[in-house]
Simulated assay, not measured.
Amino acid sequence: MRRLVENYPSLFLVVTLLIAWQITFWLVGRNALLPPGETILYLGKLLQTERFWGHIAETGMAFVIALMIAIVAGLAIGLMLGISRTAAEVFEPFLLAGNSIPKIALYPIVLLIFGIGMPAKIAFGAIHGVVPVAIFTLTACGSVPPILIRTAAAMRLTRWDMIRSVLLPAVLPDIFSGIRLGFSLTLIGTILGEMFGSQRGLGYLLMTAIGLQNIQVIMAVTLLLVIVAASVNGLLLRQDRRLRNPGS
């Protein structure tokens, strides 16, 4: 059983959630929830419609762009601060403080800058993901053995060569953990952005269904998001373990 959980964490998570969902349905009744089987069938019907795939494509495009921005910006910030102890000591508290700010409080500012639509939800998704990636990268750089840095200096490597040949290989596992966390937070940010400032996408569909009290759509979209998030996170977790244990 333990090996099954370790090898297929996403499958185990989805099955556990479905069991807990069915038990909760028995307890609270149809007024609050739909049973898993009925929701899966309804999701299957939605997936056969072109309109629903349009919402999926809108969310997918915004999320992918936001995730790329979060990864690139987070790595750049983390590496620039990580190679300088002084810069790390000065700016790390600002990163930690920024990570603790409820991002939803920034959404009105995002709307003022980008307006309603694709740019706003991309920006809001990226805001959620960039800080964790930067913090993990900065922390990883701080844990690099000093002998590696001194060796690179003795070999008179340029800063770029030192980052590419010494720093990145040493911190890659920790950076990947930050990317894994950034993936989840960016997805949350993108969905929230669609819920409050968009007219297309799964977040918009969720918000509309909540206003209409359409439990079928709410449960179906939520199930789809859980399956996608759990599946991708499972793949990322497996790759993370391979990076940390190359021989396993």
Rank of each mutant, 00 (worst) to 15 (best):
R150T: 01
A70E: 02
M80W: 11
G78V: 02
M61Q: 14
A134H: 00
N99I: 11
T158G: 15
L167H: 08
T59G: 09
F91Q: 04
G117M: 03
S84N: 14
V131C: 04
I127M: 15
G78A: 01
A62P: 06
G115L: 05
L81S: 06
L157T: 08
E58V: 14
I122H: 09
G44R: 08
L157I: 07
F52R: 07
T139L: 13
G74L: 07
S100C: 07
S165D: 15
L167N: 07
S143H: 11
I69V: 13
I69L: 09
T86W: 07
A57D: 07
G60A: 12
A153Q: 08
R164S: 12
L95K: 06
L46V: 02
P93F: 05
A123R: 11
T158K: 10
M155R: 04
I104M: 13
P146K: 12
R156P: 00
T49E: 09
G54K: 00
G74M: 05
E89G: 06
R156S: 14
A152S: 04
R159I: 06
L168C: 11
F114I: 13
L96Q: 14
A88G: 12
A73L: 14
P108D: 00
A87N: 10
P108R: 01
I69Y: 02
A154F: 08
M118S: 09
A66G: 12
G82A: 04
L46S: 01
T49M: 01
I65M: 06
A66H: 10
G142A: 10
M162V: 02
L157V: 01
A152C: 00
A62E: 02
P102E: 14
V144P: 02
A152T: 01
A120M: 09
C141D: 05
S165L: 15
C141Y: 04
A123V: 13
E58Y: 15
A134F: 01
Y107D: 03
A57S: 11
I56V: 15
Y107M: 10
V131P: 05
L95H: 02
S165P: 01
L79Y: 09
A97F: 12
L111P: 04
T49V: 00
C141I: 04
A105M: 12
S100P: 01
L75T: 06
P108L: 02
L148S: 00
